[in-house]
Computed example of a mutant assay.
Amino acid sequence: MNYGKLLRYALCIVSLVVLAPAVVLVALRMPAFGDTLPAYGAAINAQVPSMRQATNVVTAVIFDVRGVDTLGEEFIFVAAITGLAVLLRGGRGEDASRKPIHTDARRLPARSEAIALLIRWMLPATVAFSIYVMAHGQLTPGGGFQAGAVLASAMLLLFLGDGYPSWRQTVPPIVMQWLEALGAVACVGVGLLPMAFGAGFLENVLPQGQPKSLTGGGLIPLFNLAVGMAITGGFVNALVEFLEETREPEEGER
């Protein structure tokens, strides 16, 4: 009998029994669509557009009004990627020329020139879109997290088109690790920058710029960029760890 599996099922059932009533109560007490905004939401809508010249109030809240919470979330993400690497890396090597695992029931399809060509068209367009999402985060829906996820997806397209060895050579994991680390440090640096001028942590000290333009938002675009770096590096590092699980181990490895 698998006691570990039984324990997991038991914990899942207990969690559902405990949390389900709370979920139902929250759903029943949610305000109806179109109801009057709470005082906090009304204050944000009234002040953010003029204070930060940002037309995307959601991004302004995430990267300005509650920026300290966002900073904490970024480090939770970094910690999660670190934990993933610790759990999966084990005794694996880092050679970019490893071969995929081969089993009798798994046929390894040959590289498709049509797919490779299609992805080479899609890749630059996806990268350009990620830059657009990041640069316009304070104006339209988007921001650093979304842009980082899109850019990491572009890196995955490269793997799908040219295969794993080519992907590892084009996107060295060490570069992505540095990108994630620098992004996390930059998030803190953006917050500390105002303190060098006698202001508070994450308090805006930059010119507000013009509304509905890339120059608006004060510190928001810088915070967006830092988050985008951390998210891109983190997601690509996760992809590396998962894909390493599918390669053929060499002599002496587990």
Rank of each mutant, 00 (worst) to 15 (best):
R98M: 10
E94Y: 00
Q169W: 01
V18K: 02
A230C: 07
L151D: 10
S50C: 04
Y3C: 00
V240R: 04
V227A: 09
R247M: 15
L158W: 09
A147T: 03
V150Y: 05
G90C: 11
I76D: 11
L28P: 07
L108R: 13
A43W: 15
G83F: 04
S112R: 11
Q47T: 15
V86T: 06
E203L: 08
G209C: 08
A116R: 09
V61P: 00
G41E: 15
P31T: 03
L202S: 09
H102K: 14
G183A: 03
A46Q: 12
A32N: 09
I44P: 01
V24I: 15
N224I: 06
D104K: 14
G41F: 14
P211T: 12
F77I: 05
I81C: 03
G189Q: 07
F129Q: 08
L214R: 00
R66P: 01
C187D: 00
L88F: 12
L160H: 01
A181V: 05
L214E: 04
L158S: 04
A128C: 10
A114N: 00
I131S: 10
V188A: 15
T232I: 04
V68I: 02
A85T: 13
P38S: 05
G252R: 05
L151V: 07
K5W: 02
A105Y: 08
L87K: 12
L193C: 07
G90K: 12
A199K: 13
G183K: 00
A60H: 02
M134C: 13
